[in-house]
Write a protein that binds this DNA or RNA. Sequence first.
DNA 1: GCGAAATATGCAAATTCATGCATGTACTTG
DNA 2: CAAGTACATGCATGAATTTGCATATTTCGC
Lengths: 127, 127
Amino acid sequence: MDKPDYSRLAKQVKLMAHPERLHILDALRAAPQCVCHLEALLKRPQPYVSQQVRILSRAGVLESERHGNNIYYHLSDPELLAWLDVVLGPVAEGADALGRHQPIEECSCPTCATAASQAVAPVILAA
Amino acid sequence: MDKPDYSRLAKQVKLMAHPERLHILDALRAAPQCVCHLEALLKRPQPYVSQQVRILSRAGVLESERHGNNIYYHLSDPELLAWLDVVLGPVAEGADALGRHQPIEECSCPTCATAASQAVAPVILAA
DNA sequence: GCGAAATATGCAAATTCATGCATGTACTTG
DNA sequence: CAAGTACATGCATGAATTTGCATATTTCGC
């Protein structure tokens, strides 16, 4: 019977109401991702990605963890996670069953590098 | 495996990313509502309400039906409806089991008027 | 400590959005 | 057809968003 807090909800919803941010969130809900990863995924300059990440961070829906030079972000807000599941459908985007992120050629973070060198031929270093 | 259309989804999500619009959508998913109703509900001037309604209308998520002088709008997009159920929780906001809208004192549309005169004392006409 | 890699921050221009208000239109009733 | 009611539309202005870019910061390998 209590009215929802439309202001608060709208503010949270707004986080998804942006194509690139939605893309980031989609990637992030699957598994922690470093910025270079998202950069490769979105095909946008790093400062651009960092800024969108910051918007999400400052909204309190993200958590970060540093691993050497890379900073891995992941979604920490259950509410938003639930919404994303409905808007985007169940998690698919580049995540495997273990919750690790899918290696991307354009990304050179440790996770991607080792994964790539183990799986496919290391064409990465050639380019 | 196919990537979601982030642009399209973001655009649709944006419809909810606004307090007043979210409020309108909440009311609208329960039952058809006329503008005067929403006006009373939001406590905002009529042109303001009409404009928000138009945004939703032009996005194709609303349907309208005229009854005499009043125009009743209702949500016609199942996708958005599903999202609203998750964001706002199950329908509650002023709808009864029959899907009629709850009469509001400030509203003078036929539905409200008759409902009011039958139920509580018609204090409405006094003010 | 130095340079390189990964990420963050600040700023500015362009665009979009929000909102108030005056006025226009459509239907109804007498 | 005249007047009233319900709703729509146009416009103006200020605020917020978007996006690009230059530059700062942090950490690692040497």
